[in-house]
Design a protein around this nucleic acid. Sequence first.
DNA 1: AAGCCATGCAACCGCCGGTCA
DNA 2: ATGACCGGCGGTTGCATGGCT
Length: 221
Amino acid sequence: MSGMMNLVGSSDQENDGWRKGPWTPQEDQLLTEYVKLHGEGRWSSVSKCSGLKRKGKSCRLRWLNYLRPGLRRGHMTPEEENIIVELHAFWGNKWSTIARYLPGRTDNEIKNYWRTHIKKEKKSSKNQEKRRIPLEKKRDQEVITNSVPQESHVVIDEPPLLMKQKSSLTRLLSMDFQYYNNFPPVLMPQENIAENSWSDSTCSSIFAMEGLWDGLWNVDE
DNA sequence: AAGCCATGCAACCGCCGGTCA
DNA sequence: ATGACCGGCGGTTGCATGGCT
């Protein structure tokens, strides 16, 4: 903690010749020009080529979280919040993975949002949740029963946690979440789940969401 | 008006995995 | 095979700001 104190503060703060703390508009401009010329990556050479006295990591973070084109700034929409809640229920704190489903949002932003907004809400509505859970469980059970045919390759001795995860994603794909108009085709939630633990129908459900995502981003902020 | 407190967010750190010489 | 380097990721910190007393 005390270590952090001497890092941030004055924007002129330096450490071994490296600048730390808030970025100035001039630094932003230098970084932007560097990326325009050299593209993303090779962050370690930014300081050499651009004259920035920032470490590569710092440059990368600044670019990805703030300067990169196409970033969506401002409040999360209720739709985005719901997506975050559902994906977090599935992946946990895999912020970068979750961010891939929210174009224009960064993992840092989502992480911050989760900690400040959603976690707080969950805490405050804990009592309400307790009463809601039995209903959710029942609905989840119904969705699983309906969407995963008996003859598919479902792992039989599935651990309870996995069942919970599958339930969450299945619900995400269900019509409860009509704003999932276009499920990004890039990523499949295979990281936590054995390849053959998903039924063919579930996988095709996911890919069936392709081509509809645009609708979400037209939602007014 | 001033002080305190809670909240939001930008930015840093350490760890880890991938790549390459 | 291995060590150095780099980038990605999640966790954490502290500043800025706004609301409350």
